[in-house]
Design a binder for these strands. Sequence first.
DNA 1: CAAATATTCAGCCGCGCGGCTGAATATCAC
DNA 2: GTGATATTCAGCCGCGCGGCTGAATATTTG
Lengths: 95, 95
Amino acid sequence: MPKREDAYEAVFNALAHPARRRVLLAVYFAGGELSAGDAAAMFAHAWQTTTRHLQVLEKAGLLRHERRGRNRIYRLERKRLELVRDWLSTFFRKP
Amino acid sequence: MPKREDAYEAVFNALAHPARRRVLLAVYFAGGELSAGDAAAMFAHAWQTTTRHLQVLEKAGLLRHERRGRNRIYRLERKRLELVRDWLSTFFRKP
DNA sequence: CAAATATTCAGCCGCGCGGCTGAATATCAC
DNA sequence: GTGATATTCAGCCGCGCGGCTGAATATTTG
């Protein structure tokens, strides 16, 4: 089983790229799910590039996908974002 | 003046490296300030490498330093971590 | 001032990230 | 089944990140 440290590593790495952060926000504002195509349409670069970003996000556990017709629908995994929130919370505890 | 986006970029990038996350935690658990040497001592790699990590953190606004004798004391900028907290909070709002 | 200490500056280098293109795969419409 | 649509897979490539070493820069101590 993967260690907690690896989880942090994957998640923080995933969040390090602006395109990936935008995707997460886009999924959220689209109501929690978004097709790969709609995600790719947000960017100037080739859609294959977005595909890879989506995979990074998914491997980090921040997204999950589901096939729906010929689209792939990506959904947020808020639980995974809690990992970051928890990491941060350390710094905001009363001393 | 720097844009908000650039701030996110710098901060998330800074947090992407495990050594830098460890440094931030170390500073916190050391009571809010830590010398560059003590930071470097935590790692197996050359201290010059830590120097650079500290600079990345400082340029991201997550640390500030102050000379004290021949040491450089690094202090946390919690304010900057709030940026990340705010970014995250979007996802945890009631729908 | 000279020597020791603490830390940074400058610059080299390998490797992975994140662009790209071209081909493959899955599903729907006819 | 054929073609169109949506998306991924495979692989190329440049550039920057993050290691390293060696030299330089404060600051304190004797």
